[in-house]
């Protein structure tokens, strides 16, 4: 796995080089600034498979570097692990929103680094398998990514605040139980996603997911939220525990926004996506379960069977 590590502190770069080497990662390039990193990225042949970005750097920060990296098609889904001191956790929200996959804290803990790099290596392997699939089938990588299974969580392309489900889980896990308590999860379900999946080709299905994600963004524009598509027509968002919003109103707003696309769906002979919003799920500070459980609970809360009252269904076609 080819890694680019970026930090303005030469001491830390020496440490991370040694630590990665001890874990068996020897193909590591280092850069002392975001500007130097962008040069390395532009010249990289073969491309990098994983990035480690320090968050707090003078000039272009690690968060901005991550955002710029994500604009490059080649690196849209490459694992990016942010590195920050415990005192820099305030920057983490921005890092995930910019497309980070995970983060580790300084000082380096070799067990934590091993776990995080193991996750990045698994993502890299998945990416390699996808590239092999694309080659075998004469597809571009982005076209291969479009060969989505219905239950597959995917990164919704080009939608602000939409991140990968694994990044959302990592975010919660690394917050720790106490900090995770201050968050709440919101499930949003496309009730007729299976029907659309059965009738649409893969790019059209992904375009539908994109439409829904944009409608969710619009509906939650005043709320600080990160969200992800979890597969099976389910989106899940993470927001502050203290947030209050009208669940019914949000659902209506999202469905109303989607109704703007009615003609397009009709032309494709597809039903208009029909969205259900679940109740906000807040974790318990006394809970001993894993912090990510609220994501599963939020997804369940948005399923039709969990609803107390039947919703009016949008007429399609």
């Amino acid at each position: 796995m080819r890694i680019l590590a970026v930090d303005d502190d030469p001491v830390f770069l020496e440490q991370i080089l040694a630590a990665l080497g001890a874990l068996g990662y020897h193909d590591v390039v280092t850069a002392h600034s975001a500007e130097q990193a962008l040069g390395e990225i532009a010249r990289a042949m073969p491309p990098f498979d994983c990035f480690l970005f320090d968050i707090q750097m003078p000039g272009v920060s690690g968060v901005e570097l991550c955002a710029r990296l994500r604009k490059l098609e080649l690196y849209r889904r490459t694992p990016v692990v942010m590195v920050t001191a415990m005192s820099g956790r305030a920057f983490i929200d921005g890092a995930f929103a910019a497309g980070a996959t995970d983060y580790i804290t300084k000082p380096l803990d070799r067990f934590e680094l091993k776990a995080r790099m193991g996750m990045a290596a698994r993502l890299h392997e998945e990416r390699e398998q996808l590239a092999a699939f694309a080659r075998q089938n004469g597809l571009s990588l982005s076209a291969a990514e479009m060969q989505v299974d219905f239950d597959a969580p995917i990164l919704i392309p080009g939608v602000d605040r939409a991140i990968e489900i694994m990044a959302l889980e990592n975010y919660l896990l690394t917050l720790g139980r106490k900090s995770a308590y201050s968050y709440a999860a919101l499930g949003i379900h496309v009730a007729n996603a299976a029907s659309i999946y059965a009738r649409a080709d893969a790019p059209t299905f992904v375009a539908m997911l994109n439409d829904v994600a944009l409608a969710i963004c619009g509906g939650l524009k005043t709320v600080q939220v990160l969200f992800a598509y979890a597969g099976n027509g389910n989106y899940v968002g993470l927001t502050r525990r203290t947030i209050s919003f009208d669940q019914e109103e949000l659902e209506q707003n999202i469905n109303y926004a989607l109704s703007d696309f009615k003609d397009i769906y009709e032309a494709d002979r597809l039903p208009l996506p029909e969205v259900r919003v679940g109740e906000l799920v807040r974790g318990s500070v006394f809970s001993l379960s894993r912090p990510t459980k609220i994501l599963d609970q939020a997804i369940r809360a948005a399923q039709p069977t969990e609803r107390m009252m039947p919703k009016s269904r949008l007429l399609v076609g």
Binding site: D8, K106, P107
Partner: peptide, 9 residues
């Protein structure tokens, strides 16, 4: 911040 990030290790 830089010193805090490396000194313990």
């Amino acid at each position: 911040h830089k010193i805090a990030g490396v000194a313990a290790a």
